[in-house]
């Protein structure tokens, strides 16, 4: 066997670059990170900065043109009763949607985490993941069909002889309306439906971290099912609920399609932003409105982080 050289020569640019990157590993790191960070930095952070900048501009009431001067006037406009109502309405809906999602998600997440095995586990996963990924607009549209006055809900309550109940619900002040598709109840149902998978997945992840042995220990110690549930399962599921609520809360705050298609004519933040930047041409006020969900979410995230929700993401 003829002896090979100890060090092989570099052949071609591939070898030369490999040597360069080996000697300077940070150079490779910088080259890898530069394009995506430039993109996100310029396009995304740059846009966020533009949003913030616009929110400190104001609009000239006579000409309708944007005045490019720093002012807090636009933010003060948010406090006008009609605008402030929009903020309260949206945050209130976000809270209601989050609670609704948590309640409906729990049995699914708990069953999938603790009782589903093998094929069933995969089926559960797909059963949650597919609605999550299916077209958002199609889902909203489906509910327009379901909740409309002549739609399936009215038909079903008529068939069951319960139309009096439906009418009583619709007659409720504030949350009722002409039909489900033009009431807050309808808006709430569709929000809950659309964001539900975002609650199930982190909740299931949190519950899967509860070892079965811990539940058995609780049972061995004489706890009833209800006690085990309240003292063991629920506290352990809580980080998952909070993680999920980050999504349900944030998504509800920023949505403008659902209340536009299903609901009363009263505005939510998203709708206000959309109308103000479009037909009204008041970009500064639209930007100020859009800053509100960011501020609410930052505060929410700070609280969630302290409660350990990020481990369940």
């Amino acid at each position: 066997m003829g002896l090979r050289p100890v060090t092989l020569p570099e052949r071609g640019p591939g070898d030369r670059l490999t040597s360069l990157f080996w000697r300077r590993p940070n150079l490779l790191l910088v080259l890898l990170l530069a394009p995506p960070l430039l993109w996100l930095g310029v396009v995304y952070l740059g846009s966020l900065a533009a949003l913030l900048l616009q929110s400190f501009f104001s609009i000239d009431e006579f000409s309708g043109l944007v005045v490019h001067e720093f002012t807090l006037k636009t933010y003060l406009e948010l406090l006008r009763p009609s605008n402030f109502d929009i903020l309260l309405r949206t945050v209130g809906m976000a809270v209601a949607v989050t609670l609704g999602c948590a309640v409906i998600a729990f049995p699914i997440a708990h069953y999938a985490a603790r009782y589903a095995r093998g094929q069933w586990k995969a089926a559960f996963y797909l059963g949650v993941m597919l609605p999550l990924w299916s077209s958002y607009l199609v889902k909203v549209y489906a509910w327009k069909l379901i909740l409309s006055k002549e739609g399936i809900v009215t038909w079903a309550t008529d068939a069951a002889g319960a139309s009096a109940v439906l009418n009583a619900v619709l007659a409720l002040p504030v949350i009722g309306g002409n039909s489900l598709s033009t009431s807050y109840i309808g808006t709430w149902i569709v929000f809950v439906y659309v964001w539900l998978p975002y609650m199930i997945l982190p909740m299931q992840a949190a519950l899967e971290r509860v070892p079965a042995s811990m539940l058995e220990a609780s049972a061995d110690l004489g706890a009833t099912r209800a006690q085990t549930f309240r003292t063991v399962i629920l506290p352990l599921a809580l980080p998952g609920v909070i993680a999920g609520s980050i999504f349900t809360f944030s998504l509800t705050l920023g949505d403008y399609i659902i209340p536009q298609i299903i609901g009363s004519s009263r505005l939510f933040i998203g709708q206000a932003v959309y109308t103000l930047q479009g037909t009204a041409g008041n970009i500064p006020l639209a930007a100020a409105f859009a800053v509100v969900p960011i501020a609410v979410m930052l505060a929410y995230l700070a609280v969630a982080r302290r409660m350990g929700a990020f481990d369940a993401l």
């Binding site: 990170l33 995506p36 960070l37 996100l40 930095g41 396009v43 995304y44 952070l45 740059g46 846009s47 966020l48 533009a50 949003l51 900048l53 616009q54 980050i246 944030s250 998504l251 705050l253 920023g254 949505d255 403008y256 933040i269 998203g270 932003v273 959309y274 930047q277 970009i283 639209a286 930007a287 859009a290 969900p293 960011i294 979410m297």
Partner: peptide, 26 residues
């Protein structure tokens, strides 16, 4: 960096949209 990557879907779409709209305008 992971936070920066996550932000565009962690924040509501309307913020991404309105931000881009503001930037195009500016």
């Amino acid at each position: 960096i992971s936070l920066l990557i996550l932000l565009p879907i962690a924040l509501p779409g309307i913020i991404t949209g309105m931000s881009l709209r503001s930037a195009f305008d500016v």
